[in-house]
């Protein structure tokens, strides 16, 4: 009867007691609201002095909200092994970090070295009548 046992296991994993799931949505919602509002207020009122600190704080708030929604709304990390969903999500995050981080690094380097400033460009284009 291992089949029946297996089935009940999979069915149970899909149909946890409703209360538990409802609770996870409530937690996720309230936490997201709190994080959104704090991000909003520290920006709106320019709380704290350092600019770098503000950017850092906003990034941390966004990332926490991302993880909270991933966990409480999208239920990542709650599957049985083999955890393909978790693996593929981690791979996605790695690719995104490489892509965004790499692009910014490369383009920053290029901008500093080969791009004229906007002022230089406007001046140049004004000198070229046909543009």
């Amino acid at each position: 009867m291992s089949n029946v046992a297996k089935m009940s296991k999979t069915l149970v994993s899909e149909h946890q007691p409703e209360q538990a799931k409802f609770k996870s949505y409530i937690i996720g919602f309230i936490a997201s609201l709190a994080l959104t509002m704090s991000a909003y207020f520290i920006t709106y009122y320019h709380v704290s002095g350092g600019r770098a600190l503000l950017f850092g704080a906003l990034s941390v708030l966004a990332l926490s909200q991302f993880l909270i929604q991933l966990f409480f709304f999208l239920h990542v990390g709650r599957e049985f092994p083999p955890r393909y969903k978790l693996m593929i999500t981690s791979f996605m995050i790695l690719v995104v970090l490489i892509l965004v981080g790499g692009s910014l690094w490369i383009m920053h380097s290029l901008n500093g070295r080969v791009m004229p400033s906007t002022n230089q460009m406007v001046k140049y284009m004004n000198s070229q009548d046909n543009l």
């Binding site: 959104t36 991000a39 920006t43 906003l58 990034s59 966004a62 991302f66 991933l70 709304f73």
Partner: peptide, 19 residues
């Protein structure tokens, strides 16, 4: 998922933009 993407739009486009 669309809400998750919006977290980053809100932060990076609007909040960072204001800063």
């Amino acid at each position: 998922f669309l809400d998750v993407v919006w977290i980053f739009i809100f932060t990076i486009v609007y909040l960072f933009g204001a800063l």
